Amino acid sequence: MSSFGNQGAAQAQNLRDSGIPNDNIVIANREDDYSKDAQLKGFHVEHDFGKAAEIADVIFLLVPDQVQPKLFNEELAPKLKSNAVIVIASGYNVFFKFLNIAPTNDVVMVAPRMIGSSVRSLYQKGQGFPCFVSAEQDASGKALDVALSISLAIGATKAGAIASSAKEETAMDLFAEQALWPNIIVLFREAFSVLKEAGCSDEALCYEMWMSKEPAEIFERAAEQGFIRQLKLHSTVSQYGQLKGALSLDGTAVRQHFKDILHNRVLNGKFAREFSKIEAELEIQGDDNPLEKLYKETEASELGQAEIRVRKRLAQ
């Protein structure tokens, strides 16, 4: 049993192509474009999540983190077989114990480190993709075997099933979202302002810093050749400047900042509790949505306003 979102659609098709009979795959999805797509692709669709849970031997919980607790606790858990296997692709709700899981159920994590479209396309190319795997609750004594079998069936083992845990996956995921990328956003924002004060134009800055897609290419080369060694693709001036500059910076304050976020916001559940309080508000349409408020506040920066101006000029 699976929903048919980005990951659900990819994994369901990969399972079927790996030999799982179509009659053994049920897509539990509300009536929307995703369910129509599942039907067009020949899958059996059940709009009643409880009915789907009643017949499921293995349930792939592939819905957004903020949706999982209500859906699982209210609609799935009361109908789930006592020996059903629960498969998660994100450790968030299991690590923070937001799901009311019976002790008789196996809980395994099979978490592709790719977006759904890549999970599908790489499978079709026979290449596979890396995947985090763990047994979070081993009621049957065979939970890890099941996790590895699922990983094999969706195509992950061709690239590597990496032993992990819900804690590790959650820690790295939330840390990247709340420590690493916020600092990158701030670095770009402040660098933009400094260069703007030095007389650089909006267009030049936007293209030099990100719109040329050069940063995306750098990260792609880093994935292929190594985070440090990809620097050899840059000019000698660039290599020297980046290496010398990085070694001259004292990362002590940044390291302490990162530790504070990891231990005092992520792992202790502070963020999870904070986010739970505003989950309902995320369904609000318009300016009262807390996420939209954050977008507006962030886009009010000099960088944000400059990009809006540049994109408007390009559209003319």
Rank of each mutant, 00 (worst) to 15 (best):
F271G: 04
Q66Y: 10
E136A: 02
V63Y: 03
V146S: 14
L99K: 03
P130E: 05
D260E: 13
S235C: 01
I308Q: 13
N6M: 08
P130C: 06
S164H: 07
L233M: 11
L243V: 14
A102P: 00
S121R: 11
P64K: 07
S117E: 13
S134G: 05
A56C: 05
A38M: 02
K277L: 13
S238D: 08
K142H: 15
L144Q: 10
N264E: 14
V266W: 06
G50N: 05
E283P: 00
Q137K: 10
I154C: 05
E75A: 09
S118N: 12
G269M: 02
A102Y: 04
E74A: 09
S3A: 14
Q124A: 15
L262I: 09
A272V: 06
R255D: 09
V146R: 13
Q39W: 00
G241K: 03
K232V: 12
P130N: 06
F188I: 14
E54C: 07
T170D: 01
Q11S: 07
A246M: 13
Y92W: 11
D37T: 15
G155Q: 04
Q256F: 06
E197A: 15
A53C: 05
L71F: 00
A216E: 15
S82L: 11
A300E: 12
I218Y: 10
F258P: 01
L247G: 07
D287T: 09
S35W: 01
K70Y: 10
A163E: 11
S164F: 09
K259M: 12
A12C: 12
A52I: 06
A315D: 10
A191W: 00
F129Y: 14
S212C: 07
I278K: 11
R273T: 12
R16C: 05
I86T: 03
L294R: 13
C131I: 05
K142D: 13
K41D: 02
H44W: 01
D23L: 01
D32A: 10
